[in-house]
C-alpha cells in the first residue's frame, strides 16, 4: 500500500461503498432510501468495472458500466412507481407495512 492510487485502492474503496450500501439495505425501512442504497451498490460495482478496465487498458468495462447504468435507470423508474402505488394504499413508505405484497 502506497500513497499512489493503484488498482487495489479502487477495489477496496468500491468494496467499502458496496458494504455501506448493503448495510443501508439491511437497516433502513424507508423504501426510497432502500432504493438509494441499491443505487450506491450499483455505483460501487461500476467503479470496479472502470478500475479493472483502466488496468487492463481495454474499454469493455466501460460498456458494462454503461449497461449497468441503463439497468439502474429502468429499475429506479419501476421501483419508484411501485413505491408510489404502495404509498397510495398504505399511506406509508415503510417496507414492513407492505411485507404481504398485497393490499
Amino acid at each position: 500500500m502506497s500513497w499512489e492510487p493503484t488498482l487495489i485502492h479502487y477495489l477496496l474503496l468500491s468494496a467499502a461503498i458496496f458494504s455501506i450500501g448493503l448495510v443501508g439495505v439491511l437497516v433502513r425501512r424507508n423504501a426510497i432510501i432502500l432504493f438509494m442504497s441499491i443505487e450506491l451498490m450499483l455505483n460501487s460495482v461500476n467503479l470496479t468495472f472502470i478500475a479493472f478496465s483502466k488496468y487492463r487498458f481495454d474499454m469493455d468495462g466501460h460498456i458494462f458500466a454503461f449497461f449497468v447504468m441503463a439497468v439502474a435507470a429502468a429499475e429506479a423508474a419501476v421501483a419508484l412507481a411501485i413505491v408510489l402505488h404502495v404509498f397510495r394504499h398504505k399511506r406509508s413508505v415503510n417496507v414492513d407495512e407492505a411485507q404481504q405484497l398485497r393490499y
Binding site: E39, K54, M69, A77
Partner: peptide, 23 residues
C-alpha cells in the same frame, strides 16, 4: 482519475441528473 471521461459525463448526466431527479 481512471481516464473514463465519457463515463464520468454519463455519471453526472444520468445518475446525478435523471435518476436523482426521479428520486
Amino acid at each position: 482519475l481512471l481516464s473514463a471521461h465519457f463515463m464520468a459525463i454519463v455519471q453526472v448526466l444520468v445518475y446525478g441528473g435523471a435518476i436523482m431527479v426521479l428520486f
